[in-house]
Design a protein around this nucleic acid. Sequence first.
DNA 1: ATGGCTTCATAGTGAAGA
Length: 255
Amino acid sequence: MRIATWNVNSLKVRLPQVLEWMERRSPDVVCLQETKCEDTSFPAGELRASGFEAVFSGQKTYNGVAILSRLPVQGVQADIPGFADEQKRVLAATVAGVRVVCVYCPNGESVESPKYAYKLAWYAALRDWLADEMRRHPKLVLLGDFNVAPEDRDVHDPRLWAGKVLFSEPERAALRALFELGLRDSFRLFEQPEKSFSWWDYRMNAFKRNLGLRIDHILLSEPLALQTASSTIDRDMRAQERPSDHAPVVAEIVL
DNA sequence: ATGGCTTCATAGTGAAGA
């Protein structure tokens, strides 16, 4: 199973790139974030014509998640059970016996912001729910835009970013709490190029200067980690005309 | 240099992203 995550920053704008990329890379499952698309206007027909069934949970203007799959999808669940939240950030479904959990984790804005407190509370609720979800589904993949860079090597300038949102210690601890459930970072199961990132700011020519962060992740439960053959970032998509500020991340699981 | 770019939204003194 080739599974991918991509924060597309508006599916309406990025749909041609998404279709072209899926045709070329032939993933089996694609998790999207920041679709910014209400369910009534989701482009399900275009995706079906390309061979993908879609399940989605969106809202106007902000957030929005979707799972696209070549294979049948079962057990669809939106949101974190018991966590009151208007924001559409979580969608789970089972594909080929694998529990797929697509997440768009909050940004946080800055460490002083109320949105930062929301981010940490959201992460705590996600962790608690996933502990149960992993007991129900030993084969689980948690993937999406986590808005946290785990380590120094995931940040172009760790001294500049120290203590800042996306790299502050409480956020990294919240991400580590997911690893401590038994989830593995697929990207670090393999040798990778130095300065591998998944997001680059639109401003300041950040992509050309490779001033990025690795904040989009594919986390695997142990049974899946043992069956994973590769994990890569498709950074070429960030060099396209009118790109998303995030690149897709792909993992190959041998089922 | 608290900006810088992009999207969705509305016509704001924009809001939010990361």
